[in-house]
């Protein structure tokens, strides 16, 4: 765990790399006259500091990918941002990429904000050599002559321990792990300030996974970039994330330094996530969580976790708990802790 390796930058001294305030993103469908509204992200606030890897965890359907898409400005109907602001250190005052003028968005993309997507097979154009993809993505931001760019590219690949012959390859000629490493190279070639990584290692086998994570971490440390890393895999978070936010059903339920979360998880859902991680020598039977994640078209009133929660109290079904700090840097949304003087 690397959480302590990060200098604890006072959060107000410099503006954070990314700050999300009260973001609400709904999927609105109007099918056959019946309006459906799925509240995929419902009032999330978080900040990503400079030079840190901020991890977002939660099961599929918890809204973490939706949140990423909002940050990346990839908003297509029926997805709709109905409220909240997203500000970047390199682009503020608009409240998000989706509201910024196209010229600003074009300036920011890849130069300041890049993206590592899940499933590297399909994110690279199957009919384009990697060199062309690097040129398409990065050359407009880097400028100079093509020879200069090529040299820069070689240097960048060398830094990442990649052979320059990948540039002449088509995606199908590379193994899955090699493709994902090439994608990491692609996402970091412009030395962006913020890298969004969506399940970057999910489809890979364990050895390659470790290598790719190490690569992301190494280049991030070297460039001082921030990373917003989304994965359901708590093991990955334990390995690379500096701070961790836990999402459940469109809400952020807990946030703290990674070490703190693993040492002292507060929210019952977080406890469940951590306890379901396998540990060597631990033979205790895993107890599954009863029930299923709620239907976000019609979420339960109050705390969304209460129907599955072993600690559920009367108040939990009545009102939603707020995110409150229990210790410096450790926030949790649960009535079992310090809510309105409780706990």
């Amino acid at each position: 765990m690397h959480a302590q390796a990060v200098p604890d930058v006072p959060s107000e001294a410099v503006p954070p790399m990314l700050s999300v305030r009260d973001l609400r993103t709904y999927y609105r469908a109007n099918r056959l006259g019946i309006k459906r509204e799925v509240k995929a992200v419902d009032g999330i606030s978080l900040t990503v500091r400079r030079g840190e890897i901020y991890g977002l965890a939660g099961e599929s359907g918890s809204g973490k990918s939706t949140l990423l898409n909002c940050v990346a400005g990839a908003i297509r109907p029926p997805m709709e941002i109905v409220g909240g602001d997203i500000d970047f250190a390199f682009l503020s005052g608009y409240g998000g990429l989706h509201r910024a003028p196209p010229a600003e968005v074009a300036r920011v993309r890849w130069r300041h904000l890049s993206y590592i997507m899940q499933g590297s097979m399909n994110v690279l154009n199957p009919l384009r050599r990697l060199r062309s993809v690097f040129v398409d993505f990065a050359y407009p931001h880097v400028g100079g002559t093509r020879q200069q760019f090529e040299r820069q590219l070689h240097a960048h690949l060398a830094r990442l321990n990649l052979d320059r012959s990948v540039l002449s390859a088509y995606p199908h000629e590379l193994s899955g792990g090699m493709r994902q490493r090439a994608t990491v190279a692609l996402a970091t070639v412009c030395r962006p300030d913020l890298i969004i990584a969506d399940e970057p290692t999910t489809a890979l086998d364990v050895l390659v996974q470790k290598e790719v994570l190490g690569m992301i971490r190494g280049i991030q440390r070297e460039m001082g970039s921030s990373v917003l890393l989304v994965t359901h895999d708590m093991g990955v978070h334990a390995h690379v994330s500096d701070r961790l936010g836990i999402m459940y059903a469109g809400h952020l339920v807990e946030e703290a330094g990674t070490a703190e979360i693993f040492r002292n998880p507060l929210h019952p859902y977080t406890k469940h996530l951590i306890s379901s991680l396998p540990r060597i020598g631990d033979d205790a039977p895993r107890c599954g969580l009863g029930g299923a994640p709620p239907n976000l078209a019609d979420p339960p009133l109050g705390c969304r976790f209460h129907p599955r929660c072993p600690l559920a109290m009367k108040v939990c079904s009545g009102e939603a708990p707020a995110m409150l700090e229990t210790a410096p840097g450790h926030r949790v949304a649960c009535f079992a802790y310090n809510q309105s003087g409780g706990a």
Partner: peptide
């Protein structure tokens, strides 16, 4: 994905 990715890259 590769088209969405290129769009996100500002190609």
């Amino acid at each position: 994905d590769y088209v969405v990715y290129a769009e996100l890259a500002g190609v």
